[in-house]
Simulated assay, not measured.
Amino acid sequence: MQTLYVSQQGCYVCLEGELLLVKRRDTILNEIQLPLLEMILVFGKSQITTQAIRSCLWRNIPIAYLSRMGYCYGRILPIERGYRQLSRYQQELSLIDRLIVARCIVQAKLKNSRVILMRQQRRQTSDVIAFAIQSLEYLMTKAAEAERIDQLMGYEGAGAAQYFSAFGDCLTSRDFVFAGRSRRPPGNAVNAMLSFGYQVLWNHLLTLIELQGLDPYSGCLHEGSYRHAALASDLIEEFRAPMIDSLVLYLVNRNIMDIGEDFVHKNGGCYLNESGRPKFLKAFLQRMEETITDDFGEPQPKWDLLHQQVKEYKQFVYEPVNGYSPYQIR
């Protein structure tokens, strides 16, 4: 199954038989068969015809509308995508069940971050990276012993601080300087790519969560609200380092992104521009379409990792006694 990204501005998506066509004026930029489509992400000022929307809803294909910087304004979902039944099970999860899952998620995030740094340490020795690796290992042990969610959030925050303190040493391009994580707004080009990538990944997870019938606003680690889908924020923690951080390192260290052409400074922050967004999304899509082997020995695209993890959480909701297994890299 494929995801359609409409990232260029001024486009419109229309229906032609069993095809969705992405056009800009009279030029066809992309086309995709409806039976092969899983979801649509529309960035910025582009439109979808009513006929195309109706056909997507008929085929249970969700549509997400995002700003050009990746912020999700909202989603169009088929009417049967309710999650009331599973929501009751989620609400009935005990505090200890939620704590155990939250521990697993934080430990997996710290471990995955540590693995990324260990890979970089093998390529270039750095005392800063070595210290961060040791710190993350210690915090993993503390997270396993945490008895409250606020303790876990503290260990997660400390781990992120240590990890990003070493992230700059993993970058080999002098044009891309990274002194620490800044989000609202992103302070430099590296933070712009991280924020944009996290938002794209978050929206994918949110859509998959809704497609599985789970309540996205009921999580274990993060606190949900009517505007915050806590479960998406929970599950993304396992994937930040292996899917987005590693991609940013690749784009910078291979000189694929251009500091002068792919970013714009405005409103006190730095963002991907009309050149940078399609370039980032193309690399992201290529990476997510890489083939991996699942537990049954079958080849699957990396997209399936997200899908399988959402189903793993769904299975936990049905049978909390069996626990939850987070996504971890080696």
Rank of each mutant, 00 (worst) to 15 (best):
M1W: 05
M1T: 14
T3F: 03
Q8F: 14
G10C: 00
Y12C: 05
V13D: 10
C14M: 10
G17E: 09
L21M: 14
R25V: 11
D26I: 05
T27N: 14
T27V: 15
I28N: 13
I32R: 00
I32E: 00
M39Y: 13
F43P: 01
G44P: 07
I48Q: 08
T49I: 08
T49G: 07
S55P: 07
S55T: 15
L57A: 07
N60G: 05
L66C: 11
I76C: 12
L77K: 12
Q91I: 10
E92A: 12
R98M: 02
C104A: 12
I105Y: 00
Q107D: 05
L110E: 00
R114Y: 00
I116C: 13
I116E: 12
L117W: 01
M118K: 10
Q120Y: 07
R123F: 09
T125C: 06
F131L: 12
A132L: 03
M140V: 04
T141P: 02
I149S: 01
D150C: 03
G154K: 03
A158R: 05
C170T: 11
S173G: 05
S173N: 09
V177R: 14
V177H: 13
V177E: 15
A179V: 12
R184V: 12
V190D: 03
N191V: 10
Q199H: 07
V200A: 11
W202K: 10
H204R: 12
L205A: 08
T207M: 15
T207Q: 14
T207C: 15
L208G: 07
I209K: 02
E210H: 05
L211Y: 08
L211S: 06
Q212H: 14
Q212D: 15
G213P: 07
L221I: 04
E223Q: 13
G224K: 02
Y226H: 12
A229K: 02
L231M: 05
S233K: 00
I236A: 07
F239S: 10
R240D: 04
P242S: 05
M243R: 04
D245M: 06
L251A: 02
N253A: 09
N253I: 01
R254W: 01
D258H: 11
I259R: 09
E261Y: 09
E261C: 13
D262S: 15
F263T: 07
H265E: 14
H265V: 13
K266T: 14
Y271M: 03
L272E: 11
R277A: 10
P278L: 03
F280W: 03
L281G: 01
K282M: 13
K282C: 12
A283I: 05
F284S: 01
Q286R: 09
M288D: 06
I292K: 07
F296C: 12
G297S: 11
E298D: 13
K302R: 15
D304Q: 14
L306E: 04
H307G: 08
E312S: 10
E312Q: 10
Y313T: 02
Q315Y: 15
Q315L: 15
Y318S: 04
E319G: 03
V321I: 14
R330G: 09
